[in-house]
């Protein structure tokens, strides 16, 4: 419950404050957001499977964001930042779809 509230509050705070993203963070923020979304979908699925674990979620959330940022950073250094960003987004999108499908099965066919 408190987690959902925090999500909503975060969105509202972001919309109200409208901070400018530092130039150094600009390429990483969208990838980090997608990675975090993937972690949240995965956690939702785990919750429905009955195997949700706080510690695992925290680790997967932070790990996802860090690895995604690292991949984009490496891509930038190698000169293929745009392509790698696209690749990361594609992979995470596929996972989100898979998780969303599992969640749907649980809620409507379970």
């Amino acid at each position: 419950m408190i987690a959902l509230l925090a999500l909503v509050v975060g969105v509202i705070v972001g919309l109200v404050l409208q901070p400018t993203i530092p130039a150094g963070l600009q390429p990483y923020l969208p990838i980090a957001v997608v990675a975090a979304l993937d972690a949240v979908f995965g956690a939702s699925r785990a919750l429905l499977d009955g195997i949700f674990n706080d510690r695992v979620f925290v680790i997967s959330f932070i790990g996802n964001v860090l690895v995604a940022a690292l991949v984009v950073f490496l891509g930038d250094q190698l000169g293929v930042g745009a392509q790698l960003s696209t690749g990361v987004v594609v992979v995470f999108s596929i996972r989100i779809f898979a998780n969303a499908a599992a969640i749907r099965r649980h809620l409507f066919h379970g």
Binding site: L4, A6, L29, P30, A36, L37, I62
Partner: peptide
């Protein structure tokens, strides 16, 4: 902790 992480996610989402 989970709430904090989700707050960060919402914030980043909205800012982006």
């Amino acid at each position: 902790i989970v709430a904090l992480l989700l707050f960060g996610l919402g914030f980043g989402l909205a800012v982006q």
